Amino acid sequence: MATIDQLDLSPEHEPTAHGIEAFEKVEQEIKQAILASRRDWDKHEPKMWSLARDTSDQDLVAFTTKDDLVVIRSAVTSYGPIILGKIRIRAIQLDSAGNLAPGHSVEKDTHGKIKVATKHGKIDDDLYGFIFVRIHDPPGEGVENIKFHSIFTDEGKDAKGELNGLYRAIQPNSKPLEFFNE
């Protein structure tokens, strides 16, 4: 298993065609893992998914890789590349402090797809929450053998490694996409 000290992660960048194809391959697994994580954490630490407390399961996973994978990073390991992705959750709007935006309600278009807020014709990602995902791209087979690895859940720790009470599965756009090994 790779550690941050062993990796040369690329800088954050827009998804490549291969990155989009790789995440599309495991999109349904990612959605299932989000819902399973939410149910599991709600049993023993509801703060983890508290930003989604008023969001239905359906709306929480209403993203598509093509439209909502906004940033990726990758690194080569001895067992093949890993790819980290930042996926926009359209149903979660945040304020500038990374808290739920007051009075936010999910707006849907005529096809039932959640609308996004735009600024000057471009989606304003600073208004949304994100899920960070890690996948593995084993050698050979193109994207046919892509493996979903994990979702980042931030169990905040202070400089001494002690829990500081911060639990967060949904990240603000301002949080950098860093290596995680969960």
Rank of each mutant, 00 (worst) to 15 (best):
T3I: 08
T3Y: 13
I4S: 15
D8N: 13
S10C: 06
P11S: 15
A17G: 10
E21G: 13
F23R: 05
E24G: 03
K31Y: 09
I34Q: 06
S37T: 13
S37P: 07
W41L: 10
D42S: 11
K43L: 12
H44Q: 14
E45P: 02
M48F: 11
D54I: 00
D57G: 08
Q58F: 02
V61L: 12
V61Q: 12
A62K: 02
T64H: 04
V70M: 07
S74H: 12
S74I: 01
A75D: 02
V76A: 15
I82C: 04
G85Y: 00
K86R: 15
K86Y: 08
K86I: 01
I92E: 04
Q93L: 14
L94D: 02
A97M: 11
G103F: 03
H104T: 02
K113R: 15
K115T: 03
T118S: 15
D124P: 01
D125K: 05
Y128H: 07
D137H: 11
P138E: 10
N145T: 00
S150T: 00
S150F: 06
T153W: 07
K160Q: 14
G161D: 05
N164F: 11
N164T: 03
G165E: 10
L166S: 04
L166I: 00
Y167I: 03
Y167P: 01
R168G: 03
A169N: 07
P172K: 09
K175W: 08
P176L: 15
L177G: 07
L177H: 08
L177E: 06
